[in-house]
Design a binder for these strands. Structure first.
Lengths: 195, 195
DNA sequence: TGACATCCTGAGGGTGCCTCAGATTAAATG
DNA sequence: CATTTAATCTGAGGCACCCTCAGGATGTCA
């Protein structure tokens, strides 16, 4: 709402950097085992740091999540760029979509945060989400130009499908693994059979 | 986990029934405006009742959610039965799916609870979810028998698609309304074009 | 009018969130 | 090395919510 999303950046002093890294590591572990709503106080103590220190570096839960997932999303974007000139645009798109769903469901609760960030500026992850949106849109456009994907599918819809798939995967994470199947259905639903 | 899900039932004494109803009404309002994680203490005070009374009738947040949504899901099931002999099984299925998605996204957070209940017995909503599962499976089978829907789609997958759609709708509820589009994509993806 | 099962109350202990005034300490400077 | 300064750290404390339970209140039935 205030227009200036807080993006966590590594602090300057040595002890600051040490703690920043320790907190990030503890957060990754906690998020993966407990979900995006893991206790921040647990994370702080796990990192051997007082709660105030955590808040100094990551004033918001969202900013911590952003920092913990930035690498993965950056990889996703750069992978898209590497795929952008692939001989078979449909293969490229499907490979990327699989990877995207995997990243979106790194831990429970992440998709929800990303989905919100996608269209809500003023959110820490919004920038990265925008970049992803662009990469995905490029791959989609290419596949559509090649006549492999229904031409009326918009990038926004693509991301709805991706996040829906990730959410289902997230839910199923405990019991049955009905997740790769979901994406396959989606893919078969949007592709145009080769003549 | 303990195998005996608690299903809220109307109490016997007059004051008990009064309070039960007041709590339920307050809960519906709160869930709709705030989501499934609305404050239980707010709900209690909104119902003019002490917090202990709320817990007496609904020992668990899940049991309160179940009670608040039971009617809607019952309607959904009975509607499926009414549709079961329809002349066009595909129309019947799609109509029912639209209605299901609408019910699943009555308020923020509901789909998640239902998705969990679907495959986790010992959950208040599990019984109702099972009934829905059966109704949906019937409609699906009919549409498949008529050659209108891909024959390899399983009921479990149908519900993954439905809950995915509901989740996306739930997310989009605030801003853009990219939700009916999602279900349309899914539907077009699973149907077999008429020859 | 009892008598009793049902129901209600709200204080209290527990957890997590977030802030802030004061104590520390890394690093730059002379 | 001593001093200074700005960055960093600490953790008590206020707030909100969760859930429980012992004791009080009350409707119901005979």
């Amino acid at each position: 709402m205030d227009g200036k999303p807080y993006i966590a950046q590594r602090p300057k002093r040595a002890d600051g950097r040490r703690n920043y890294d320790a907190i990030l590591a503890a957060a990754r572990k906690a998020f993966e085992s407990t979900g995006a709503d893991a206790s921040l106080e647990d994370i702080a103590s796990q990192a051997g740091v007082a709660i105030g220190t955590l808040y100094r570096h990551f004033p918001t839960r969202a900013s911590l999540v952003e920092a913990a997932t930035r690498d993965g999303l950056e990889n996703l974007v750069s992978h898209a760029e590497r795929l952008s000139g692939a001989p078979d645009p449909l293969d490229a798109l499907t490979a990327w979509m699989r990877e995207a769903v995997a990243h979106f469901s790194t831990f429970r609760g992440l998709v929800g945060i990303l989905a919100r960030s996608m269209y809500d500026e003023g959110t820490p992850s919004h920038t990265m989400c925008n970049a992803m949106h662009r990469s995905g849109a490029d791959l989609l456009r290419a596949a559509q130009a090649a006549g492999s994907v229904r031409p009326d599918l918009t990038p926004d819809e693509l991301f709805d499908l991706l996040s829906g798939a990730a959410w289902v995967r997230e839910q199923a994470a405990g019991g049955r693994d009905g997740s790769p199947r979901f994406l396959r259905l989606v893919l078969e639903g949007i592709t145009i059979p080769r003549a």
